[in-house]
């Protein structure tokens, strides 16, 4: 198999066959997933959203075996439900079948958050332009994913929408380039930004409202194996009708905020502390309050120069 064969080289029939049988093996950043599912919505979404991802085989080392399966029992005829499995284990309660793809995405995040303790994992978006990277931690009300999608559509390379992977030894940021999960109004705002956006199915009535996934740019996926030095941590906050305001944050506060946003700081113990210390030491820390798209894009544009 040529080294850089992507999913787009397979037709729908072949993708569906692999998902149904032994599993479709994809490189997702530093991880390799084997995905199985017989659900048509998984086939459609995976084909569309993961088109640029590198195809691997069962002869490669695989990190995670994930599947989405219909639940058994009589109830499935009235109200079909699905479960996420990480190998034999199902960590979540079942969801309505319409939410299959969001559940797969969520489950893949879960696998990484539970098992990738060779990274410090932060709940944040990460983007890069001209070698300058920004970590955008996801505090509630930050509008992180919308901001992330805006930047990704304006020349920033997407490293991750959900998770910063910080190498414990080198302190470098590693990329995932996974789809960006958008909710409710954000979906419209982002589709209006560009004609080139590709979205997955729009799923209504999840416990987070309406969800759809934005396909990551081909360039972001092509460069997924390139790590980058952390340059800045910016704590965003969306505030209606506010002019843009950027403040430097003192580093002790930033340190504590980073910990709060980490998935595995507690588990990592000393290694976690040392990595956060090294990270804080080498980045600028800012808080950003914004409402206008133009203003916030202009700010980041300047930041990258």
């Amino acid at each position: 198999m040529p080294k850089n064969q992507t999913l787009s080289s397979l037709n729908t029939h072949e993708i569906s066959k692999r998902l149904n049988k032994d599993g479709l093996v994809l490189a997702v950043g530093p991880f390799t997933f084997c995905i199985k599912s017989s659900l048509p919505s998984i086939v459609n979404n995976v084909q569309k959203i993961y088109a640029d991802f590198q195809l691997l085989s069962h002869d490669d080392l695989i990190d995670f075996y994930v599947s989405i399966k219909k639940t058994k029992g009589i109830r499935r005829f009235i109200k079909p439900q699905i479960n996420f499995y990480s190998d034999d284990y199902s960590p979540f309660l079942p969801l309505p079948a319409s939410q299959a793809f969001p559940l797969l995405e969520w489950g893949m995040n879960w696998c990484i958050a539970q098992h990738a303790h060779h990274y410090l994992l932060l709940h944040s978006a990460v983007l890069e332009k001209n070698g300058k990277s920004v970590i955008l931690p996801a505090q509630s009300g930050s509008g992180k994913s919308t901001l992330c999608a805006l930047l990704a559509l304006n020349g920033w390379r997407l490293l991750s929408d959900e998770m910063a992977l910080i190498d414990l030894k080198s302190c470098q940021l590693h990329a995932l380039a996974r789809p960006i999960s958008l909710k409710n109004e954000s979906i419209k705002v982002i589709s209006a930004q560009s004609h080139n956006t590709v979205f997955g199915e729009i799923v209504d009535d999840t416990n987070k409202g309406t969800i759809s996934h934005l396909k990551p740019s081909t360039v972001s996926v092509e460069y997924v194996a390139e790590p980058v030095r952390p340059f800045a941590i910016i704590f965003p906050k969306y505030q209606v009708n506010q002019a843009i305001n950027v403040q430097e944050t003192d580093k002790a506060t930033a340190f504590m905020s980073v910990i709060e946003n980490s998935f595995n700081y507690a588990v990592l113990a000393e290694a976690g502390f040392n990595t956060v210390a090294a990270l804080i030491d080498q980045v600028q820390c800012h808080t950003l309050t914004y409402s206008s798209t133009e203003e916030v894009l202009a700010f980041f544009e300047e930041f990258a120069h």
Binding site: W110, S145, F263
Partner: peptide, 10 residues
């Protein structure tokens, strides 16, 4: 990690 449960929730 309780933070996992807020994933996706910005």
């Amino acid at each position: 990690d309780p933070r996992f449960h807020q994933l996706d929730e910005d």
